[in-house]
Amino acid sequence: MKHHYLILIFSLCLPLVSCQDESQTVEITGKRRLTDYDQQSDSFDFISPKDWRRVPATRFRELNFKFGKDGEAYFSRANGSLLENTNRWLKQYGQEPVATLESFPLVDFAGGQGYLIEADGDFRGGMGAASRSDWGLIGVIASVGESTIVTVKMVGPKEEVKAQKDNFLSFSESIKGR
């Protein structure tokens, strides 16, 4: 008699414990239709270079990319004037400040034009970044409206930055706000 109870209890428990292996591999082929969410979820349209990888945006980097081992490229907004921000960048590389931006070339940027700034040398650090030697900077800076500055900046080992210049300029030109 007792073993009947055991068989019953075991039979009742069997379906409860014979669960599917949750860790098994799953094949994914399902897609979902594009919705309004896809239009709203990103603030920009752009074409990024294939050897760049987009990483999470931060508070000060609305578009944030990395390339190579230490290379970075990012789109930001800044306060102050075009001249103030340009001189800050130059100072970070030990270069003399400029009195005017006229010597810098204009390039296509975010539907308009911006000043192309280049610098290299020993990066003195700042804004939370550590100092680096043999570092390079290529950046574009432009004003939007009366008091907003927008920039796209690429930093990293000098040779890597130089090699990415064409990619950088194409990317800068492609940026469009939604």
Binding site: I28, G30, K31, R32, L34, D45, I47, S174
Partner: peptide
């Protein structure tokens, strides 16, 4: 190449 994408594949 234009930076656009079609329907996403979804891990539900």
């Amino acid at each position: 190449d234009a930076g656009k994408h079609a329907e996403p594949l979804v891990i539900p």
